Simulated scan of single mutants.
Amino acid sequence: MAASPLNVQPSFHARSNSLPSRQHPITSQIDENLNRLRASQSASTSSSSTGHELTCLQDLYDYVDMLLQFPLTQQALAQDQQRKSVEQVLDASLVLLDVCGTAKDALLQIKECTKELQSVLRRRRGEVEGFGDEVRKYLTSKKEVRKAISKAFKNLKHMDNKLMSKDGETGSVISTLKQVVAATMGVLQSLLSFISGPEASSRWSLVSKLMHQKRVRCEEEEEKTN
């Protein structure tokens, strides 16, 4: 799994003029969900763990939305000394939205190509002649997806370096939002890595092996029928 920015330690418990000195229940929930994400990130990458991370992330954003509705939070974000940090968080949010769009498009493209490949497999019933063209088409599509994902990774890395800079004063609200952004980056990195999958050579080897096994089974069934 790619290195995740989720190792950032919680800092929004600190006393600040941005939030009441006593921790609000919402911030406790945010803290809890961040910890859940960190625990999930330490597990191995799989479809189940990635799905769990996405579920945790959805819960996390529900509480963040509640936090942003508080008048005290809005007052803290409106302070002049927080302006640069707020702009950084907003810019980071736009990058995250763009990366989410990349992940969505990649999933749709892979799903469509996989359905087409499965359809070809069913129609050919084990015949391998001309099947290489279909597989190459599928792998080309996957290569395009990997290229888009690679660009998304670079955008995330650039955003991480910019977001974690210490320019300007950072209040507890901004600190919380930056940790949420970092958590989102970690989940998106896991998701993109999962979508990207193994190298093309490994996929080709697997497909070739499956086609060989399918052809052998068809030949054996044909011999039994004869």
Rank of each mutant, 00 (worst) to 15 (best):
N161W: 04
M211C: 07
E87H: 09
I174C: 12
V180Y: 01
D59A: 07
V86A: 09
L117E: 08
V128F: 05
D31E: 15
T102V: 15
V128H: 01
C113N: 13
I174H: 12
F153T: 09
L163A: 06
S205F: 03
R122G: 00
L68R: 02
D98M: 11
S85C: 03
L177S: 15
L107R: 13
R15P: 02
G51S: 07
C56V: 06
S44N: 09
F70I: 04
E219S: 14
Q9N: 12
E32W: 09
V64P: 06
G130D: 06
S172H: 05
E219L: 11
R125D: 11
T140C: 14
E220L: 03
K166M: 08
A76Y: 00
S175E: 14
A78T: 01
R217Q: 11
N226H: 02
T102F: 06
G130M: 03
A148F: 11
P10N: 15
R38Q: 12
C56R: 01
V180A: 06
S175I: 06
S85T: 07
S42E: 14
S28L: 14
E112P: 02
A43T: 03
L72P: 01
S44W: 00
S11L: 11
L117P: 04
A14F: 12
L90G: 00
G101A: 13
L19W: 08
V173L: 10
S202I: 04
S40C: 10
L121G: 06
